[in-house]
Write a protein that binds this DNA or RNA. Structure first.
Length: 284
DNA sequence: ATCAACGTATTC
DNA sequence: GAATACGTTGAT
């Protein structure tokens, strides 16, 4: 029930069986570009904290806790119960990480990232967020080596919630963009990962450096030209437009070469945008 | 909304 | 370090 057949095919780790899968695996195994290697991991702890704050804001009971979202049963009862399989869906009330209004199915996304090798689990003792140890610690279990990710019989991660509860769950925005304003590179159609943006260098994660005190615009990722639109394909500057005439001071590309995608306002927030305009379309 | 200028990320 | 170009900001 977690993954549609097309996605299950995509995530089949038994080996590449199609040219698309072979290409995807090759791309994943290729070394990062220099600029991508310099990308710094983006911790989800801030996101989770924000989510928690939002939950408090929206909850009139004021007793809402992210623990309740991540471990509804653990937060309410089951002190000595053996580990229950994680519910596929949290209660529909309040903010729901598993079926958020914005389509942010975080666990699914992270599962895909991990399977694609784009998500790293980097536990550090000092990087345990305020929610660190949730779930696993509650049952006296330890996450060993930071790679304790179990899959259920359906091949889905059932023990992912403790990872969400810790801030050592990190993403590498250079390798994996969670915001693709010019169109996502994960394509649901055809059951294959498009990965169009990976080889070229995926850009577009925003907000990672926009935390208070980071200096605002400094550190914000730059999007890149799509290279496919008419302006991008145009060769040479016109040398007549204002951008060309003010090249030294304006620092702008020729107006006739300005990428159509970059003309649009960049997407904001932690979300995937697909050509269809839907986030995580395979889950809809 | 458009434009110019600037800051700065990125590439060479 | 220079050149290029994206993002932001302020002026119009």
């Amino acid at each position: 029930p977690y993954l549609p057949p097309s996605m299950a095919d995509t995530l089949d780790m038994s080996g590449p069986s199609s040219p698309e899968q072979q290409r995807a695996n090759r791309i994943l195994s290729e070394p990062l570009r220099r600029s991508l290697k310099r990308s710094h991991p983006c911790s989800l702890s801030e996101y989770l904290n924000n989510t928690n704050r939002i939950a408090h804001h929206h909850s009139s009971s004021s007793s809402t806790d992210i623990r309740g979202f991540l471990h509804p049963t653990a937060a309410q009862h089951r002190p000595n119960q053996p580990r229950q399989p994680k519910p596929h869906r949290a209660p529909s009330s309040n903010i729901d990480l598993w079926d958020s209004p914005s389509g942010l199915h975080l666990a699914h996304a992270a599962e895909l990232l991990m399977r694609a090798g784009a998500l790293t689990l980097t536990p550090t003792p000092k990087d345990q967020g305020p929610l660190g140890g949730l779930g696993a610690g509650g049952n006296g279990e330890e996450v060993e080596g930071g790679s304790r990710v179990e899959g259920d019989s359906m091949g889905c991660v059932t023990d992912f919630l403790p990872l969400l509860g810790c801030s050592w769950f990190s993403l590498n925005p250079g390798l994996f963009a969670l915001t693709a304003g010019g169109g996502g590179f994960l394509t649901g159609g055809g059951g294959s990962m498009g990965m169009a943006g990976v080889g070229e260098g995926v850009e577009g994660l925003r907000g990672e450096s926009s935390s208070p005190g980071s200096g605002g615009g400094a550190g914000r990722r730059k999007r890149k030209r799509c290279g496919e639109c008419v302006p991008c394909r145009r060769m040479g500057n016109c040398e007549e437009c204002s951008a060309c005439r003010n090249r030294k001071t304006g620092h702008q590309i020729c107006k006739y070469r300005k990428c159509e995608q970059l003309k649009k306002k960049a997407a904001t927030g932690l979300e995937m945008v697909f050509p269809s305009g839907a986030a995580f379309p395979w889950l809809q």
